Simulated scan of single mutants.
Amino acid sequence: MTLIVKQGQEKASEAFIRMLPKAELHLHLEGSLEPELMFRLAERNGIQLPYGSVDEVRKAYDFTNLQSFLDIYYQCADVLRTEQDFYDLTWAYLEHCQQDGVVHIEPFFDPQTHTDRGIDIGTVVSGITRALRDGNEQLDISSGLILCFLRHLSEDDAFATLDLAQPYLQHFVGVGLDSSEVGNPPEKFARVFSRCKELGLKRVAHAGEEGPVAYIEGALDILDVQRIDHGVRCTDSEAMMARLAHENIPLTVCPLSNTRLKVYQHMSEHPILTLLERGLCVTVNADDPAFFGGYLLTNYMALVDSLDMSREQAARLAANSLTASFASEEQKALWLEQLQQVCA
C-alpha cells in the first residue's frame, strides 16, 4: 500500500510512533527477563544468583560480542523453573508491548535452554501460551509463538527437541534458528528444517548478524525460510540486497542489539534506513530488550535520535512489520487501515 503521511518528512516523534500499530517479529522471551524479575524468581525458587544487586547485573551487561552476551543470557535463564515463572516472564513483556503500541507479536523461545536443565517442555509451553492467551483477551495483542533451535548444538539435538514439541505443535506458528552464528552455518540444520516444512510450520532463521552473506543465502536456499532475522550483513553484497528487495524477503532488524553487540560502533552507522530506501522489507525489533537497553519503542526512537528518521519512514517500518507477520491477510488489512488513519 502507498502510505499518505501528513507532514511525512518531519522527524518522527515518540507520540506518533507509539500510535502506529506495530508488530514485533524478533524478540527472545528469555531476553526480556529484567533483573528485577530475575531476583524475584530466584527468591521464589530458592536460587542463589552470582550477582548481589540489580545494579551489579546491569553492569555485567557490557558486551563485547554475541558470545559474551550469550554466556550471561543462559546463566540468567536458570531462574525460570515453573509454569508460573514462564507466565510472569511473558506477561511482563506483553505489558511493555501495550505501552509501546504493539498489536501483534511473534516471540521466540528456546526450549533447549530449559530442557537441558531438566525442565519439562510442557511446563515452558504452558506458561508462555497461557500468558499469550491472556494478552490477546485482556490487552488485544495477538500472537504466534516461534520455537527456536540452538545452533551451537547438533541437528540431532534439534530433532530431539522437535520430537518433544510434537504434542504442542498447535501452539506454534513456526520454528527459528538462533544462538552462536559464526561456525554454525544454516546447512547444519537442513534436514530438521525440511521436516518442519513438512509439518506445515513457518520458518525463520538468524543470519547475517555476525555471520557472512553466505549464511543469508544458505538460510534462504537450504532452510527455505520466509524471513531473515537480523540480515544486516546483506550490505556486504549488492547482489544479496537486490535479491532481498526483489523477492520481498523481510529482515527483522534489531538496532539496539546491533550496537550493543558491536556489529556497529554507533547507531549513526546503522544501515536500516538505507536498506528501507533501497526497497528492502526491513522491520524494527528489540531482540533481547532486558540486555540491550530497550523495548520496541526505544529502538524506533534510537533511529530518530541518531538517523533523523522521518514520520514517513517510521510509518513504512511499522507497515513492513505488519505485512511481514504470519497473521492472516484479513487481519493485516485491518491493521494497515488503522495505520493509515494514524498517518493521515
Rank of each mutant, 00 (worst) to 15 (best):
I4D: 12
G8T: 08
Q9M: 09
Q9E: 15
K11P: 07
A12G: 11
F16G: 12
I17H: 13
R18T: 15
A23I: 15
E24M: 06
E24G: 08
L25Y: 05
H28G: 11
G31H: 10
G31F: 12
P35K: 04
P35Q: 08
M38A: 13
L41I: 07
A42M: 09
R44M: 11
R44F: 08
I47K: 13
D55S: 14
A60I: 09
L66G: 04
Q67E: 15
Y74I: 14
D78V: 14
V79P: 13
V79G: 14
Y87D: 06
T90V: 10
T90M: 02
H96M: 06
P107I: 11
F109A: 01
D110Q: 05
P111I: 03
P111R: 02
P111Y: 04
H114S: 03
I128Y: 03
R133G: 01
I141P: 00
L145K: 05
L145R: 06
A158W: 02
A160H: 12
A160M: 07
L162S: 06
D163C: 01
Q166S: 15
Q166Y: 04
Q166D: 14
Y168F: 15
V175K: 04
D178F: 00
S179K: 02
E181Q: 09
N184T: 11
N184V: 10
P186S: 06
E187D: 13
K188G: 03
K188R: 13
A190R: 14
V192G: 03
V192R: 03
R195T: 15
C196N: 04
L201R: 02
L201E: 10
V204G: 00
H206F: 03
P212A: 10
A214R: 08
Y215T: 09
I228D: 01
V232P: 10
C234G: 04
C234M: 04
T235Q: 07
A245T: 07
E247A: 07
E247W: 01
I249C: 02
L251F: 04
T252G: 03
T259Q: 15
R260S: 12
M267E: 12
H270D: 03
H270L: 08
E277C: 07
C281S: 12
V282A: 07
V282G: 05
N285A: 03
D287N: 11
D287C: 06
D287T: 01
F291Q: 05
G294V: 12
L296T: 05
S306W: 01
M309R: 01
Q313R: 00
L317W: 08
L317V: 13
L317I: 12
L322M: 09
L322N: 08
T323F: 00
S325H: 05
Q331W: 15
K332D: 05
E337H: 13
Q341E: 14
